[in-house]
Structures are given as C-alpha cells and as structure tokens.
Design a protein around this nucleic acid. Structure first.
Lengths: 208, 208
DNA sequence: CCTACCGATCGGTAGG
DNA sequence: CCTACCGATCGGTAGG
C-alpha cells in the first residue's frame, strides 16, 4: 500500500520461494530437493513456506507455470526478424542462444517434469502458450513457398527439438569433447536444419 | 557349477536387482526410488541387496553401465545397411525405432543421469562406446561425396540428437496432440535431417 | 513468520 | 538371504 507498483513483502517472499525452488529443482530434480533447502535458500524458516504454498508439489507447479524455460523461449523466437526463412530462423536462433546464455541447465526443469511427473503439468502450459504457437505457425506459413511441403507445426517442433538435441548432447559430451568444436557447432546444427526444411533453390513447387 | 552356461543364483539375483532398479529409476528418477522398492520388485529382502551392491549409487552406476539405452542404440545403428547415405541412415533409423519399440521412456535413464548426476557417469560410457563410434564415423566418411562438408562426428551427434528431439517433444506433446500426426512424423523428422546433411543432387563439390 | 514438534520413510547395518 | 533395528531426514503442522 505504500506504493502501488512495489510488491508487498508477502509477494516478495512468494517470489523468493519460487526462485529458490527453481534453482534447486533444476539442478537436483524434484525428489532430491527438500523443503528445508528451499526455505533456507529463500531466507525463510521451513514453516513459513506453508503460508505461501500448501505443499511441495504446489511449489513445483508454480515454478513450472511461472519459471518455465518456454516462457523465455517463445518471446525470443517471436522476436526473430527477416524477410526469408533463412534470416527469420537464424535470427530467432541467435536471440534464443543469447537469451539462454549458454546455460544448458535451463531445460533441466522440463526434463525433471518429464521424468518425475511424466509430463503431467504440460497440458496447462500448452494452453498458456497456444496463442504464441499459432502466431509462430502463421509466421512460418508466410514463408511457405520457400519451404518443402512440411506442416508448419512440425517445422516448429523440429526447430525446438533441434535445440533440445543440441543442448542435451552438449551436456553429455561437454566433459569429453576433444576440443574439435564447441562454439560453432550450433551453426552446423542450424545449417543442417535449414537445409532440411528449405526448398532447393531453383525449383519452386515441383519436387516429389 | 551345475552347468557352465547357466548363471548362478547369485548372478540371477544381481541381474534381478539391475532389472528392477532400471525399471524404477527410469520411471521415477533416482532420488524418488527407494532401496525398498528395488528389493521388493526384485523379490528380495532389503538387506539382501547389500550382498550384491554396496550402495544405492553403486546400483545406479551398474544400471548405467549395463542397461544404458546406448547399449541398445549403437548396435542398431551399426546394423544399418545401404549403398547410399539415404538408404544407410533410413535403415539405421528403422531398426532403431523398431528396437526401441516406441517406448520413449527408454531415455529417461539418461535424462535422470543428466539432471540428478550432472552427467557424471558418462565418461566411462564414452570410453566403452568409443570403438563403435569410430566404426560409425568411418562408415559415414565413406559417403563423403554425397554429404555436405560437415564433420562426421557432428553428423552422428545430430543424428542421435534428432531422436532425442523426436522422443522428448513427443513425450511432452503426446497427451495433447490433436491427432494430426503421431505415426509418420518421424519420417518427416528424418526427411528434414537427410535433406539437411546431403549434398544437393547435381552438384558434387562446389557448394559454398 | 518462527520454533518445536509429528509420524513416516529413508539408506544402511548387525547378527544370525 | 532375512529380520529387526539404527540415526537421519523427510513433508507437513500446531501454536503462538
């Protein structure tokens, strides 16, 4: 009430709990993280957490809904500029990688959700993101004549999947990759993807 | 000792523990799985487990080394036949999907390892698989003139990554995918990948 | 918002 | 290979 734009103390505590839980869940997983750890990192006593969230699972749900990587990813993809698919997707990829800051642990939260909750919380997320997904699909449809005849949703899925593939194989290989690549291999991934979805130059419609 | 090819009772118990642990770890994650659950599913008392493995983490390590999805995957890829990259990779993909039986949970073990152990056990796995990886890279190098100039290891990584991308996005979307696709979308993924790595027909070496 | 507590369950062990 | 137990820690709550 002191200032209508300043969050209340209760709001700040609730947010601190989410930040703490996000950091812990995404580095340790759900079951391996205790309420005591969450409380300590948030600067609260254990009992105080329950003034903001009724249970551990409720905190996880709130983290998924308010700190999910996709909340970061989708706007970044929508930022993509360009008059050709090539430009559009490359710029989307650039802002994506920049925004995610080369911190592959960002998708640990989603992996945890998949393994420990079997994707149970994804439904509501999907509804939340649906308008943005439609926008993106429409944007891609605008480049239709540059693309091979692949459904726009699948191109989107493959595009997102490419980053999964890149980050996960990167996390697994990071420690023992000789030194060959490491930096420009995302460009190569992107090159494979772009060559994969684009119509070969010179032919407009009569492939297959 | 009754038959030199028959596993001893101790061996069978050890194997039952691994089977049990694999099933539980890959559906619940590591921390969410208790030693009591592992014992019960293996048909043993809790205390008996410790005659075969010294700790819970030792069981996880044994599971990773002896039940890891890659142990299934690599031979399947090596089975791939064909005189062109297209045939080779398509046949590899076919036997891969057939062998993994449309059960995407097969890679949960690896996801769990990445999230809960930060990929700590991958080093030894990598050494174990190194010869097969070399064989595969050599096989791909044989198709060099059909391929765009991309390092063979990265093509391999992208190929494996494509399945990660396909299965993970599939697990997440499965529940709410309208009904559009579901069956032939792997073909489309594969098509994107193949178009992405292959040299456009008609030009042999002078791209870029 | 904290202190102090609850019953349940955890990984692991002793002893037979 | 099992029974019975250990101390530690878990998610959650009462009471102030």
């Amino acid at each position: 009430m002191t200032d209508e734009t300043l969050p209340s103390k209760a709001d700040r505590s609730a947010s601190a709990i989410l930040d703490s839980a996000y950091a812990l869940f995404s580095t340790q997983g759900y079951a391996a993280t205790s309420m005591r750890q969450i409380a300590e990192r948030a600067g609260l006593a254990l009992g105080s957490i329950y003034n903001h969230y009724p249970s551990k699972e409720a905190i996880f749900e709130a983290v998924v809904n308010e700190r999910h990587p996709f909340l970061l990813i989708l706007p970044l993809i929508l930022e993509g500029q360009g008059d050709t698919v090539d430009e559009f997707l490359r710029s989307a990829a650039r802002s994506l990688v920049a925004g995610l800051g080369d911190h592959p642990e960002f998708l640990n939260l989603m992996l945890t959700e998949v393994v420990e909750f079997k994707g149970r919380h994804v439904q509501q997320l999907f509804e939340k993101f649906f308008p943005d997904i439609l926008t993106l699909a429409g944007r891609l449809a605008g480049f239709q004549d540059e693309l091979r005849p692949i459904p726009a949703p699948l191109i989107l899925r493959a595009f997102v999947g490419m980053f999964f593939a890149y980050f996960i194989t990167g996390m697994v290989l990071k420690n023992q990759m000789p030194l060959e690549m490491q930096a420009n291999d995302l460009d190569l991934f992107l090159g494979i993807f772009l060559n994969g979805v684009k119509q070969p130059v010179g032919m407009t419609s009569e492939s297959k």
